[in-house]
Write a protein that binds this DNA or RNA. Sequence first.
DNA 1: TTGAAAGCGCTAACAT
DNA 2: ATGTTAGCGCTTTCAA
Lengths: 371, 371
Amino acid sequence: MDTAAKYNHVDEEAESIVTRKEVAELAGVSEATVSRVMSGVGPIKAETKQRVLEAAQSLNYHPNAIAQSFARRRSGNLGVVLPYVPKVHIFSTYYFSEVLSGIGEQVKEMGYDMLLMFRTPGVESDYMRIFRSQKVDACIILGATDTPGERAELRTMAEAGLPFGLVNQHFSGERFLEIDADHTEGSYSAVKHLIARGYRRIAFLNGSPQYSNSGDRLRGYVQAMREAGLLPGVEAHPADAEAIPPHWYYEGNYSRTSGYKAAAEMVRNRDRIDAVFASNDRMAIGLMQGLREHGIVPGRDIAIVGYDDSDAARVTDPPLTSVAVPFYEMGRLAAEKVLTRAAGGSGADEQEPPVSMKLDTKLVIRQSCER
Amino acid sequence: MDTAAKYNHVDEEAESIVTRKEVAELAGVSEATVSRVMSGVGPIKAETKQRVLEAAQSLNYHPNAIAQSFARRRSGNLGVVLPYVPKVHIFSTYYFSEVLSGIGEQVKEMGYDMLLMFRTPGVESDYMRIFRSQKVDACIILGATDTPGERAELRTMAEAGLPFGLVNQHFSGERFLEIDADHTEGSYSAVKHLIARGYRRIAFLNGSPQYSNSGDRLRGYVQAMREAGLLPGVEAHPADAEAIPPHWYYEGNYSRTSGYKAAAEMVRNRDRIDAVFASNDRMAIGLMQGLREHGIVPGRDIAIVGYDDSDAARVTDPPLTSVAVPFYEMGRLAAEKVLTRAAGGSGADEQEPPVSMKLDTKLVIRQSCER
DNA sequence: TTGAAAGCGCTAACAT
DNA sequence: ATGTTAGCGCTTTCAA
């Protein structure tokens, strides 16, 4: 207490300007020594260390992290880039919130903080600036879309050897670090399940095509349907929407509303549909609501399978059969990989090419297609 | 292109070390001028500005944000402190995700980034370090609990005049900046609604008592019940759980599982309960599941009201009557207030005391208590 | 084991 | 309108 007394003036005017210098004076050592003690670097005599620690404590000294970052040229932050859409509650979507939780877990584990950055979709050259700004040591990009502009930006970053990773999005032909799930297999198993349950006239409600996983799901659907001989023109189209009769193909944007709207279209083809595979639970839920309003009871009159296995799938009526995706683990893994990469060789030299991963999905059977 | 040619060596070895100096040389001005142009400060001749901008562009120069933060003593980050619980998917809880979305909106609006920091509940002196580290200009604390330790820490911060705010948590007797909702009123209206629907034997499933809003809800419940003459011992206990007969009072921790478990206890008092008010939707949903497994059909055999009006409330069977809380707006407001405060007078001087707010909730009626 | 000193890249007086 | 220069608080050689 009285040791700190001579620094009264400091106490008065903010408490926050306790600098290393004062600690050094109080402990009777040089600033460099304080530095060493605080960051546990280099050899220090135990007694000295003790003295410095006490001085620091009594002055309530905390190193300035910004200055540290500056000197070390390392921020201690993992950047997470999110698409910014005004008024859309992005954290409230199952996919983002799970991935973020996983990232959060890993980040904490590795002693980083997490810097969330919102990019305005469509505005170019945003990614590079994130790294240039040095506010982050590495970053994870969520909600990336495959447009020429984004692809070019990402390629530039990859060429510069910057440690970034993508979650749940694949850019074919590029060697980006990607943590994805096997959505083709996931969709395939969902549709197979419907077929095994005796459904034949299976419609597909897909999400926005600019996400690679929409294409993946399309492939899974087409493959399962073809194998069962339920789709005409076996080899005509490799796997695009053209391969599917229009009364079986619907497209939303992964929102509940878009599922709700799709219901209105589907009722027009009511007699040609006995089951629907929806590309995510939100759309499936909107669809169920819409169908019900048209007097079609999900689970009884029509089978539904969703995708994501979000919390909501458990509480719908009937509970929704859905495909579980390990989003949490994907986020965790992405953070781990990208931070490890950042900690390793900086610069573009001697980096092994990033090794992407594709995790397994799992069909979770509930009551929505068990008539 | 050829203007940049002489900096070939830079291009090769990382692209990221383009510094202001090089821009200055290329543009034939001083470094200070580059600085002025880049940060739009001070008077600049249009032609000079143009030249600098071109040079910067051709070299692909981006200011180092860390160095800027360091020199300006201002990070441009809003810190958001979250409780860290291993394996709990914190972003996936409605409350956190909505508040974060609101913060994200405002942060983007005001040109800040959002730094997420996980604190380990129970570890002291974490809050102060956040400010001391200078990584953030202000911060918002989520999931704070009213323990002596936390209270003391927060008080220290408040005394130091640090710009922080709390969301959805009230510390009585303190003058913290708090953005809260009127949970007493919310609960009161929920229980009133049950009473108006003819229910008399109304149980209360509350959440963890360390959150002020649990106490708020308790008060609302007791008030409504007393006004209707449904609770014995009118003035005995001001408003604690003791005031409620044990067969009407249950306590969970806001998780679905805890609601599920409460169901098992409730069935033992089956004949003394015809309605339940649950302190959040998750518990309400777990409760509904649990009751159903005991052959008690929610909405038909027993009325249920939830709280939060999360997305899940819309899709349960039956759809859950619930109390809507403007979490998004609360987050947005908290961010606005705290950042405004940070931008204003720094230091503890001449600050008006923070002005807290309590927003209104709104009962959303669905089918879970409309027998 | 410790101290002295040179940066890190930028901002912000102060000078011109 | 622009240049000069002294920091910002810390890390990190290099010496001692």
